[in-house]
């Protein structure tokens, strides 16, 4: 590996990798056999190609963030603004030291994140907080000098909030507002329901004037439009399970299981009315949709019927 470490960033090798990347990105009739042979020639070629591909992806991501995050261009804009402020203030004969601090406040960083069905993405905010964005989700994160916040339009996000007592972190999910200082917790907004579960730390959920404090392992379930909620206990470790490709259910209705699965796959599953209230407890490994349904068939008296692109869950006749 030490040889790799030294040679993966050897300029000539990187140049070769970059040429392949450029050619394959969009070439007409690229020579895949020749590319395979080049990779097989020396393991360092693969590592150099990884470096090029990673750099291309990082550049794309950084450029996209720059579009929505004025902060990224702070040095130029800030210098210009501060110089302008200074000249105005000097002309007015005011003491710079007194007036300038409010102008020094960092401008808001605004970041929009959207994932497609089946996509999961991790986003690190400028404060060090990490958003693990699950399938079919859209959200906006805003950071400025006084506050940090995420507006969850739909979907699911697991938040690891960097501790900062001076800047509480708010998550708006429909008419629920979740406030924390630093912790790990999960928020789902899907089909009118808002669910919050806590892995670490203390989280406050506010709906109108009513607020409730959640401890690790607490699971809050509410519906938009009503301040009512249900509180249940679960294993704090289960909160982060989706990141390991697992869906954990405890006494969940089949309707809930299906609506969770439906966020991960394009093909929507429809449960028949007579099976919607069947209860399921267990761990479903997220892999192939049909395989997941087959596993459900083993636990519950249900059967999968495929018609065209649709999947139906019905009561099985054999059990």
């Amino acid at each position: 590996m030490t040889r790799h470490a030294a040679e993966k960033s050897d300029p000539a090798r990187l140049e070769g990798a970059a040429a392949w990347h450029a050619r394959l990105h969009d070439g007409h009739a690229p020579d895949w056999a020749a590319f395979t042979a080049w990779l097989e020639e020396d393991p360092c070629n693969r590592l150099a190609f990884d470096a090029v591909d990673m750099a291309a992806a990082e550049a794309t991501e950084a450029w996209e963030q720059r579009g929505s995050a004025p902060e990224a261009r702070l040095p130029v804009g800030f210098a210009r603004r501060a110089a302008f402020a200074a000249s105005v203030l000097a002309a007015a004969g005011l003491a710079l030291a007194v007036i300038l601090p409010p102008l020094l406040r960092a401008p808001a960083e605004v970041l929009r994140v959207a994932t497609t069905v089946g996509e999961q993405r991790d986003v690190t905010l400028a404060d060090g907080s990490v958003l693990h964005v699950n399938t079919a989700t859209s959200l906006t994160a805003t950071l400025d000098g006084d506050s940090r916040g995420v507006r969850l339009d739909k979907g699911e996000v697991l938040l690891e909030v960097a501790r900062d007592p001076k800047r509480p972190f708010h998550v708006m999910a429909g008419d629920r507002e979740v406030t924390v200082v630093g912790t790990t917790f999960n928020v789902v907004r899907d089909a009118g329901a808002v669910n919050v579960s806590v892995a670490e730390g203390i989280v406050q959920v506010q709906s109108g004037a009513a607020a409730v404090r959640l401890q690790p392992g607490d699971r809050y379930r509410g519906r938009e439009g009503s301040p009512a909620y249900a509180l249940t206990k679960s294993d704090p470790a289960a909160v982060t399970a989706w990141r390991e490709g697992q869906l954990i259910f405890e006494e969940a209705s089949l309707a809930d299981v299906v609506s969770t699965m439906n966020r991960y796959f394009e093909r929507q599953i429809t449960p028949a009315p007579e099976v919607r209230n069947l209860r399921f407890s267990g761990v479903l490994k997220m892999d192939d949709q049909v395989l997941m349904l087959r596993r459900l068939e083993a636990f519950l008296p249900v059967a999968v019927r495929e018609s065209g692109n649709e999947l139906h869950l019905e009561r099985s006749t054999s059990k």
């Binding site: 993966k8 960033s9 300029p11 990187l14 140049e15 990798a17 970059a18 040429a19 990347h21 450029a22 050619r23 990105h25 070439g27 150099a48 470096a51 090029v52 990673m54 750099a55 291309a56 990082e58 550049a59």
Partner: peptide
């Protein structure tokens, strides 16, 4: 186009290989 892309990718990989979190 291909030549410019190669130069850009090589330059980015060289710069980022030194500093990237992922490396």
């Amino acid at each position: 186009v291909e030549k410019h892309m190669t130069t850009a990718l090589k330059h980015l990989a060289l710069t980022l290989a030194d500093v990237s979190r992922d490396w």
